[in-house]
Computed example of a mutant assay.
Amino acid sequence: MSPTIRAQVVPVSDIAAAKAVYTALYGEPHTDTPYYVGFDAGGFEVSLAPGDTSGGPVAYADVDDLEAARQALLDAGATERTPPQPIGPEARVCVLDDADGNAIGLRGK
C-alpha cells in the first residue's frame, strides 16, 4: 500500500480561538475536547491540538508499518522530531524532519 495523507494536525496556542476560526470554515467539529478538536474536511481530517506552534502544521501519511517507514526515512537522512507515541488502541504517530526541517508525519501500527 502506498502511503496516503489523510490528516493534518495544526498546533495552536489557544484551542478555543482556533476552533472558532476553523468552525467558520469547516462547520461544527466532530470531536471537541480540550486537547483535540477534529473537523471532517471532505474525508480529510483537519485537527487542532495545543502545542508548540513553531513547527507549523504536520500532515500525516498513513503507513502499514510505522517502524519500517520511520526507519527508512531515518536511513535516508531524516531526523526524528517526535518518537512514536500511541494515539489510540491500535495507532501510533511520529514526526520526522527532512534535511530542511520540514515535518513528515507518519501514522500507523
Rank of each mutant, 00 (worst) to 15 (best):
Ser13His: 13
Leu25Ser: 07
Tyr22Ala: 02
Tyr35Glu: 09
Ala20Phe: 02
Val12Gly: 08
Asp32Lys: 03
Pro34His: 06
Val37Ala: 07
Thr23Lys: 02
Gly38Pro: 11
Gly42Val: 13
Gly27Glu: 09
Ala20Met: 03
Ala18Ile: 05
Tyr26Trp: 06
Gly38Asn: 15
Ala24Cys: 04
Asp14Ala: 05
Pro29Ser: 00
Tyr35Met: 11
Glu28Ser: 06
Tyr35Ser: 15
Val10Gly: 12
Ala18His: 01
Ala24Phe: 07
Val10Glu: 15
Thr31Leu: 07
Gly43Glu: 08
Leu25Pro: 01
Glu28Gly: 08
Ala16Phe: 09
Pro11Asn: 15
Val21Leu: 02
Asp40Thr: 06
Ala41Tyr: 12
Phe39Tyr: 11
Pro11Ser: 15
Tyr35Phe: 12
His30Asn: 10
Ser13Gln: 11
Ala24Gln: 05
Tyr26Gly: 07
Thr23Gly: 03
Val12Leu: 06
Ala18Gly: 05
Lys19Arg: 14
Leu25Lys: 08
Thr33Val: 14
Asp14Lys: 10
Thr23Met: 06
Ala41Asn: 12
Tyr36Asn: 12
Glu28Gln: 09
Glu28His: 05
Val37Arg: 05
Thr23Ser: 07
Tyr35Thr: 12
Val21Asn: 01
Ala20Asp: 01
Ile15Pro: 01
Lys19Ile: 00
Pro11Arg: 11
Val12Arg: 04
Asp32Val: 02
Thr31Trp: 00
Gly42Ile: 14
Phe39Asp: 11
Thr23Ile: 00
Asp40Lys: 05
Val21Ala: 02
Tyr26Arg: 08
Ala16Gly: 11
Thr33Ser: 14
Pro29Leu: 02
Tyr26Pro: 06
Tyr35Ala: 15
Ala16Leu: 12
Asp32Pro: 02
Asp14Met: 03
Lys19Asn: 03
Ala17Gly: 11
Asp32Ser: 11
Ile15Asn: 02
Ala18Phe: 00
Ala41Cys: 12
Val12Phe: 03
Gly43Trp: 11
Tyr26Val: 05
Tyr36Glu: 13
Val37Tyr: 12
Tyr36Pro: 10
Gly43Ala: 09
Ala16Pro: 10
Pro34Asn: 05
Pro34Leu: 03
Pro34Ala: 05
Tyr36Gln: 14
His30Cys: 10
Ser13Val: 07
Ala17Asn: 15
Glu28Cys: 04
Pro29Gly: 07
Ala24Tyr: 01
Ala17Ile: 06
Pro29Val: 04
Pro34Phe: 07
Tyr35His: 10
His30Ile: 15
Tyr26Met: 12
Pro29Trp: 04
His30Ser: 12
Tyr35Leu: 08
Tyr22Val: 02
